[in-house]
């Protein structure tokens, strides 16, 4: 595999998709307002929970805000990368242009899951990062190299898990074509990620750690932020990330096999 070529192609992807998004300027503004309102709404909801109590599942309001921050960043990433590409895959399958992609001499997963980028999530990422900085301040977190590295690792893992989940759903398009509803299921499950895992009952916690690893997506990075994550949790997260990445890759190859033996 020629790494240099993939870099060149990716910069082209970046350029072309940003250029085409800029054709719809009002859209970007509306999406920006949506992002702000959405963050305000979730903080509002959180404040409702905290209006009569000091902590939820052992998390104080200031600590729970970290989860909001990480969730917002990840949601921004989803809106910037994962969701637009999913939409693109659905279009490819429905219009039969997936054939063009498969005949390109680049890895089809690379092409199909990274081709699009939409600036509408940028603001969310920025807002989330700002919120995180604010949280670092109000929670009096000491910054150290160790801390930064751990944060980076766990957040990267979260992004990879999220990517795998989204790509998994994208892949099912090959059978079902209409995956909007599956996306909605994923979105509503991910919604859980806005709250600390420990605020849910044991059975739900179990479900969201084992079956859909939402616990790993936001709660563990937040714990790392607060400095009370055990190291085994981080290692576990890395392990799970690898499993997810490999499975989603395998699933895609399997889907392609099906596509090329059954499509007409």
């Amino acid at each position: 595999m020629n790494k240099n070529k993939y870099l060149v192609v990716y910069t082209k992807f970046l350029y072309t998709s940003l250029a085409s998004e800029l054709e719809y300027k009002t859209n970007i503004i509306i999406d920006a307002i949506t992002a702000i309102l959405s963050l305000v709404g979730s903080i509002f909801l959180l404040s409702i929970f905290f209006q009569n109590t000091g902590n939820i599942g052992g998390w104080k309001f200031e600590q729970a805000l970290i989860i909001q921050g990480i969730y917002t960043v990840l949601n921004g990433i989803t809106n910037t990368w994962f969701n637009p590409n999913l939409r693109e895959i659905v279009r490819h399958v429905r219009e039969g242009t997936l054939d063009f992609v498969l005949l390109k001499p680049v890895d089809s997963q690379f092409f199909i899951s990274l081709k699009k980028i939409s600036p509408s999530g940028f603001l969310e990422i920025i807002l989330g990062v700002c919120l995180l900085f604010y949280c670092i301040k109000i929670n009096q977190i000491k910054l150290s190299l160790n801390f930064l590295i751990l944060c980076l690792i766990t957040i990267t893992c979260s992004i990879c898990i999220l990517y795998s989940l989204w790509f998994f759903i994208s892949t099912t398009t090959i059978w079902f074509v209409k995956t909007w509803n599956a996306t909605e299921v994923l979105r509503s499950l991910l919604y859980i990620g806005r709250f600390p895992m420990s605020s849910f009952s044991f059975s739900l916690r179990l479900f969201f750690s084992i079956i859909i690893p939402i616990a790993f997506i936001t709660t563990i990075p937040s714990e790392v932020f607060l400095g009370f994550a055990q190291i085994w949790k981080v290692i576990l997260e890395i392990f799970i990330t690898l499993i997810f990445l490999i499975t989603s890759r395998r699933f895609w190859l399997f889907a392609l096999k099906y596509y090329s033996s059954a499509s007409s």
Binding site: F49, T53, I56, G57, F200, S201, L204
Partner: peptide, 10 residues
Amino acid sequence: NIWTNNNLNE
């Protein structure tokens, strides 16, 4: 689940 698990409803 959040409401009842944390006794927020009282």
